[in-house]
Nucleic acid binder design. Structure first.
Lengths: 135, 135
DNA sequence: CGGTTTGTCAACCATTTGGTTTAAGTTTTC
DNA sequence: GAAAACTTAAACCAAATGGTTGACAAACCG
C-alpha cells in the first residue's frame, strides 16, 4: 500500500529517525548569538562575562544561550573560583557534519542515477516510439 | 573598556553577525521530521502526500514542515495540476557547511597556537624560575 | 455532473523560546 | 567583615513552534 515500490527502500532510513542530539546541535546553531559565542570560543577559552559583553542583551539572556550550547554538548564549562570558564567541544559538531555529508552524498548519487535514467529513456524512445504509455 | 585587548580583534567578526539565511537553514535542520523529509527528497522528487505519508502527523503539520524547508531555500516546489512536487536545493546547505568548516578551521588553528604557547611557557619556566607570579 | 484526491487556510491550543527585571548565592578583594 | 565581581534562579512576558481540527478550493476520474 506504499505509494511506490522504490519508496519502500528509502523508508528503511527514515519513518521517524529520532536523534535528539542532532536536534539540539542544529537548534543551538540556529541563533546568531549562539554562533557568535561559538566563534568567540573558537579563539580560546572565555568566562561568561567575556562572552556576554559584546552581545546586545542582558547577562542572564547570554547565560541562557551558553546553557543551550552546553545542552548540545558544543560547549563545556569548568568552574574555577567564582568564574565559569567555557571551551568548545568538537565531537557533537562532527555528527552534524556527518549528517550533512551523508545527505549530500545521497542526493548527488541520485542526481547521477537520474542522469543515467534520462539517457536510457532517450535511447529507448529513439528505438521504438510506437509504445505510447503515460506514467 | 573592552575586557581584554585581544578580544577587540575578534570583535571584528562578531558583535552581532546577523545571517537570517543561516538561521533558517539550521533551524530547518533542527527537527527530525524535516530531516526525514530532506532525506526522502534526496532520493528523488516527491509530492506533499508522499512526503506526509510516513510521518506520524496530520497532513497540514507535514505541509508546514515543508514550508519551513522552503523558507530556508532547502526545498523548492513546482505545482503541476493539483500536486505540488518538491525537490531539494543545494546552495543553502553549502553556506551552512561553509560556516561549520570555517568554525572548525578557526578552532583547530587556535589549538595549534595553544600548543605552541604551552611549549613556550614550559621553555621559559625552565630558564628562569625565580619570577613567581600567580595569574 | 458528482465524488475523490490534493492541498491550503484559519482557528485554536500547549509548549518552547528568547528576552526582561529583580533577587539571591559564592568567591575574591580590600 | 563589607564591598565588589561573577553567576544562577525566579518570575514574568511576548512571540514563535509544533501540533490539531474543520472548512474550503482546485483538479482529476468515473
Amino acid at each position: 500500500m506504499v505509494d511506490k515500490p522504490c519508496a519502500a527502500v528509502i523508508l528503511n532510513h527514515m519513518v521517524v529517525n529520532r536523534s535528539p542530539r542532532l536536534d539540539r546541535v542544529f537548534h543551538a546553531l540556529a541563533h546568531p548569538a549562539r554562533r557568535a559565542i561559538l566563534q568567540r570560543l573558537a579563539g580560546g577559552e572565555h568566562n561568561l562575562s567575556e562572552l556576554a559583553a559584546p552581545l546586545r542583551m542582558s547577562f542572564p539572556a547570554a547565560s541562557k544561550h551558553v546553557r543551550v550550547l552546553e545542552r548540545a554538548r558544543l560547549v563545556r564549562r569548568r568552574v574555577v573560583g567564582r568564574t565559569h570558564i567555557c571551551r568548545v567541544e568538537g565531537k557533537p559538531l562532527e555528527e552534524a557534519e556527518r549528517w550533512l555529508e551523508e545527505y549530500r552524498r545521497h542526493w548527488e548519487r541520485n542526481f547521477l542515477r537520474l542522469d543515467a535514467l534520462l539517457d536510457q529513456m532517450k535511447a529507448e524512445e529513439r528505438e521504438k516510439k510506437p509504445d505510447h504509455r503515460r506514467e
